[in-house]
């Protein structure tokens, strides 16, 4: 993730992008039928490492007593559909 200047501070950020992440987080809770005890983290990852796939939305699902799951969708968060979430949830974990 090279040279994302402003990242450390991330004072203001892009409100639209933040709203998309928050909305996706809520939808993930519904689509994946998660309880209130589960923690969901949604992030758009733009990594310049050649080994990384470029832009990707990563949904981490952390439920008590279960191994953390990472749902990876090769789209911006704003473009992720419920179907994408469902498909990623059934994909094998790396």
């Amino acid at each position: 993730m090279a040279l994302r200047f402003g990242l450390f501070g991330r004072k203001d950020g892009d409100d639209g992008a933040k709203a998309a992440l928050a909305a996706l987080k809520e939808r993930a809770r519904i689509v994946l039928c998660l309880s209130d005890e589960a923690t969901v983290a949604v992030n758009e990852i733009v990594c310049a490492d050649p080994a990384c796939p470029g832009l990707e939305t990563v949904v981490l699902v952390m439920e008590p007593g279960r191994r953390t799951r990472a749902l990876k969708i090769a789209k911006a968060a704003a473009e992720v559909t419920d179907e994408d979430l469902g498909a990623a949830a059934t994909a094998p974990q790396a």
Binding site: A41, N43, T68
Partner: peptide, 25 residues
């Protein structure tokens, strides 16, 4: 200390899942 790779194998995209969860709480 649950270390989690956001992108497989990329050291720079590695985070601590447990911290995300604990900080959220």
């Amino acid at each position: 200390e649950e270390v989690f790779e956001m992108n497989n194998g990329c050291i720079c995209c590695t985070v601590r899942g447990d911290l995300i969860r604990i900080l959220d709480g």
